[in-house]
């Protein structure tokens, strides 16, 4: 339908003489060529730098390039088979699953609560908003460095926790709860990962607050008023009217947060590193170390292809649905 739009001007404004119309038609066609030409460099760049490079990485992941010297001989699924049998990669998958779950939950819940509270026509709203938003302007590296200090096993926060009977060593704990044997690893929640979740939540909650706040502000007051007149309780108004209306925002936040957490690297690299027994390791860190420190290029490429796949599962349906919704 859109291409039609571009050509409509001619029809609409064709009241002047025929002469003029033919005169204008030529530069217009010219303009459409110009438009495509302007887009072309970007398309070429994206084709090469995104799709071409992904293809090349995929090719490397099927090769034998696991040393300093490139070796593109075909290795089949060897690199993938290696990873899925690898303790470290299994641990990475576990860590990513729990990090993603907890991180998204924390961001959603805290974001929704704070947005609702901020929407209560309170005093100093902009001050509170600024406090909740500012960490987003920081780098994950800064967040990692700072939280490393805040949560250091021998520092203040942990001394307070000690009063409640929590050992300060939780920060580097290798405990997995509940720790069911699964493959080579213990499956469960790695305690040390909680520290990373807290730091990540600190940084990203502002995003969900902003999203929910925008959503709440977009809900017309008449809706609530009407419900109130019908005698609905405030709680009911929220669960039956507001929450469903916020659903698309919730989905957006989940998708955005999921793609951040599935590819997370800098926060963990700066804050905890892979951790003892790889309790805080994630594919991003593993890929970095194995590729650029150990020269296992094919293994590293295989890790990234798995990462890409996990992100694509979320993103492609989302992109397609929002494309339909958008136009």
């Amino acid at each position: 339908m859109e291409p039609v739009k571009a050509s409509t001007p001619l029809e609409h404004h064709s009241k002047p003489s025929m002469m003029k119309e033919t005169k204008r038609k030529r530069p217009l066609i010219n303009d459409r060529v110009k438009a495509i030409l302007c887009l072309l460099p970007s398309i070429i760049l994206i084709t090469i730098f995104v799709y071409g490079f992904i293809g090349w990485t995929g090719y490397v992941s099927f090769s034998n390039w696991n040393s300093l010297i490139p070796d593109f001989s075909f290795a089949g699924l060897k690199n993938y088979a290696y990873l899925f049998a690898d303790f470290r990669f299994q641990a990475d998958l576990r860590n990513t699953v729990f990090f993603t779950l907890f991180f998204i939950m924390a961001v959603l819940v805290a974001g929704l609560i704070l947005a609702i509270l901020l929407d209560q026509k309170i005093r100093a709203e902009s001050l509170f908003r600024n406090i909740f938003f500012f960490p987003m302007a920081l780098s994950f590296v800064v967040t990692g460095v700072v939280w490393q200090w805040v949560l250091n096993p021998s520092t203040g926060v942990n001394l307070i926790l000690k009063e409640f009977g929590i050992s300060p060593m939780w920060y580097t704990s290798v405990t997995i709860i509940p720790g069911i044997e699964w493959g080579k690893i213990e499956f469960g929640v790695p305690v040390a990962m909680i520290a990373v979740v807290i730091a990540a939540m600190w940084q990203m909650t502002g995003f969900s607050v902003a999203m929910y706040l925008a959503g709440l502000r977009g809900i017309p007051d008449e809706l609530r008023e009407a419900a109130r007149i019908d005698g609905a309780s405030e709680f009911k108004i929220f669960t039956k009217i507001i929450f469903p209306l916020l659903m698309p925002i919730t989905v957006s936040v989940i998708i955005i947060m999921a793609h951040i957490s599935l590819k997370i690297f800098d926060l963990i690299y700066a804050m905890t590193g892979p951790g003892a027994n790889f309790v805080t390791d994630v594919p991003g860190v593993y890929m970095f170390e194995t590729t650029f420190r150990g020269n296992y290029y094919a293994n590293g490429a295989a890790i990234t292809m798995i990462m890409l796949l996990s992100v694509a599962i979320f993103i492609i349906p989302y992109l397609i649905s929002s494309r339909k919704g958008g136009s």
Binding site: E2, P3, L39, S42, I43, I46, F49, V50, Y51, G52, F53, I54, W56, T57, V60, H259, L262, K263, F265, P283, G284, M287, F288, T291, Y297, G300, A301, I303, T304, M305, M307, L308, V311, I315, I316, L319, I320, R323, S327
Partner: peptide
């Protein structure tokens, strides 16, 4: 154009690790 736009947008979500080696 819309398909191209969607294809371009995908580039924003990829884990950049997956293009790093090339």
């Amino acid at each position: 154009a819309d398909w191209i736009f969607t294809a371009v947008l995908f580039g924003m979500f990829i884990p950049y690790q997956s293009i790093l080696i090339p």
